[in-house]
């Protein structure tokens, strides 16, 4: 076992333990904290798999931004202590069954026909032998080991054309050493703007729609206030229970009292 192998096992174990913590914690905030641990462990795994940029993104976006959202939502809903799911026997049995099936599948997969160990450190020749995806390169191309397989197009395009399918496909081979020689972020960027430029642009649309949704679904439109006032005028207003006033942002009361009274000391 090399250093990297040991670290993979440690990070993997941490990921599993923290993932279990997410579903088994009795308080939502502990679940959220376990999720942070899970995401950081995954970032370490990405790092060990030679995906430095992805590791950084994982920490910045998930452990950073997404977790902020989670914590805000927990604060927004302010849920109390939940029943521990462990006490529900059916949930326990169901969970155990899922774990069993998943483990079985992966054991089957590891012993299966294609997946083989030792990929990251293998030489280019063994990779070509081990992964069926690379077999197509062998079939159409003399199996010479390209020192810079980042010229992926040269390998893949002739085969694509030979098969009379669409030209211009990028079947790109990446060997870790070559990637690191050029720079991990640089290679990611290069791929993002060549092979994956369409998904990249769709992402911007997706983010725009998400922004519209976040604003639309949470804003208080004139129509909503009118409807709320109409509803409130039909039945007598409920006396607000002291001490546990609802946050006005989510309160189902008309806006007028919230806007005038109730100085909110945050």
């Amino acid at each position: 076992m090399t250093q990297a192998d040991i670290l993979i096992y440690i990070a993997g174990a941490l990921a599993v333990v923290s993932a279990a913590g997410v579903v088994m914690s009795s308080q939502p905030i502990y679940s959220a904290l376990s999720l942070v641990g899970n995401m950081v462990s995954l970032a370490v795994l990405f790092l060990l798999l030679n995906a430095q940029f992805l590791a950084a993104v994982q920490v910045i976006v998930y452990a950073g931004a997404v977790m902020v959202l989670f914590v805000f939502i927990i604060a927004l809903l302010s849920p109390g202590r939940e029943d521990s799911p462990l006490r529900d026997r059916r949930a326990l049995i169901g969970g155990a069954a899922i774990v069993y099936v998943t483990v079985q599948i992966f054991v089957l997969a590891t012993n299966g026909t294609t997946y083989k160990k030792g990929l990251p450190t293998a030489t280019c020749a063994t990779i070509r032998e081990a992964v069926p995806a690379y077999r197509l390169i062998q079939a159409g191309q003399p199996a010479s080991c390209n020192p810079f397989p980042l010229h992926g197009n040269e390998n893949a395009v002739p085969i694509a054309q030979a098969n009379n399918s669409a030209a211009g496909l990028n079947g790109v081979l990446f060997f870790p050493d070559d990637v690191n020689r050029v720079g991990n972020v640089q290679v990611t960027g290069g791929q993002l703007f060549t092979t994956f430029v369409l998904p990249f642009e769709i992402t911007s649309l997706l983010l725009l729609v998400a922004a519209v949704g976040a604003v639309y679904l949470t804003r208080r439109s004139p129509g909503r206030e009118r409807a709320e006032q109409a509803r409130a005028s039909r039945r007598p207003p409920l006396p607000a229970p002291a001490g546990e006033s609802l946050g006005p942002g989510v309160a189902a009361s008309p806006k007028a009292p919230a806007a005038t009274g109730e100085p909110e000391s945050a």
């Binding site: 931004a65 997404v66 959202l69 604060a75 927004l76 302010s78 998400a210 946050g247 942002g249």
Partner: peptide, 22 residues
Amino acid sequence: RRFSVSFYVTAMLFIIFDVESI
């Protein structure tokens, strides 16, 4: 106590522009 829903919108918008910067 419950937080205002404004926090949530802000966090959501933060994620969107965070992903952009990534």
